Amino acid sequence: MPLSNQDIKRLRRIGHHLKAILIFGDKGLTDNFVEELNLRLEDHELIKVKVNAETRDDRADIVTALCQKSGAELIQRIGNIALLYRAAQKPNPKLSNILRYQDA
């Protein structure tokens, strides 16, 4: 189900103060990285990923591939930081950024 503009604005507000918890680097899109991305999305629902790539087009391609592999939705991309969202099956109130910052 696509997110409404209001939902996207709320997620951007929550994600503003988050720090990148995954860094995409030289090794490329490995199975281990995708597995770690899926685990972090399941735990936190809303995460920032730092993408180290040389050109803007490369970064855009990598972020698109990350979204496709994980089933996440791109909320925002500024420079080399991408804000990704995927609803968790069973959100943990202590880990979920959505539940912890729902009043933001």
Rank of each mutant, 00 (worst) to 15 (best):
S96W: 05
L74R: 09
K9D: 11
L22G: 00
S96A: 08
L22N: 08
Y85V: 04
I8H: 00
D7E: 15
A104K: 04
V49H: 04
H17K: 03
R56P: 00
N80K: 09
E35D: 13
K48S: 00
R100L: 07
G71W: 12
D7C: 06
V49P: 04
D7Y: 00
A60F: 01
L3W: 12
F33I: 01
I81S: 01
T64Y: 14
I78E: 06
I23C: 15
P2W: 10
H44Q: 10
Q6F: 03
I14N: 02
D43W: 11
T64Q: 15
K19A: 11
L83M: 05
I81K: 02
A72F: 06
V34F: 03
D31S: 14
R86V: 01
R86G: 03
P93L: 05
E73A: 11
A87T: 13
I98P: 02
L11I: 08
V49A: 04
I62S: 02
P2A: 13
L41C: 01
L46Q: 04
K9Y: 10
R86E: 03
I23G: 01
V51S: 01
I21C: 09
H44G: 05
K94F: 12
N32V: 04
Q76Y: 09
S4A: 08
L99M: 13
A82N: 02
R10M: 04
T55W: 08
I8L: 11
E36R: 11
G15D: 02
V49N: 02
I62Q: 02
I78Y: 05
D31R: 12
R13S: 11
L46E: 07
G28W: 05
R86Y: 09
G15A: 03
R77D: 08
I81F: 01
L22M: 11
G79H: 05
G71I: 07
K27H: 14
A72I: 04
P2E: 15
K27C: 00
V49T: 07
R13Q: 11
P2M: 14
L29E: 10
N38G: 10
I75Y: 01
E54R: 15
K19E: 13
I8P: 03
A60D: 13
I21M: 06
T30H: 12
K48F: 08
G28F: 09
A65D: 12
D7K: 14
M1Q: 14
A72L: 07
R40T: 01
K50P: 08
I21E: 02
E54G: 14
I98H: 10
N32L: 11
R86M: 03
N52L: 13
N38W: 03
D43N: 15
E36F: 05
T64W: 11
R13D: 12
K90C: 00
I14M: 05
K27N: 12
Q76M: 03
R12S: 06
V34S: 05
G71E: 03
Q102T: 08
N32S: 15
V34Q: 10
D103N: 07
Q6I: 10
R59A: 14
G28R: 09
D57V: 13
L99C: 07
L29Y: 11
I98Q: 08
D31A: 14
G71R: 06
I75A: 04
R100W: 02
I14A: 07
A53D: 06
P2I: 13
R40E: 08
V49L: 02
G71V: 10
A87D: 12
E73N: 13
A60S: 14
A82P: 00
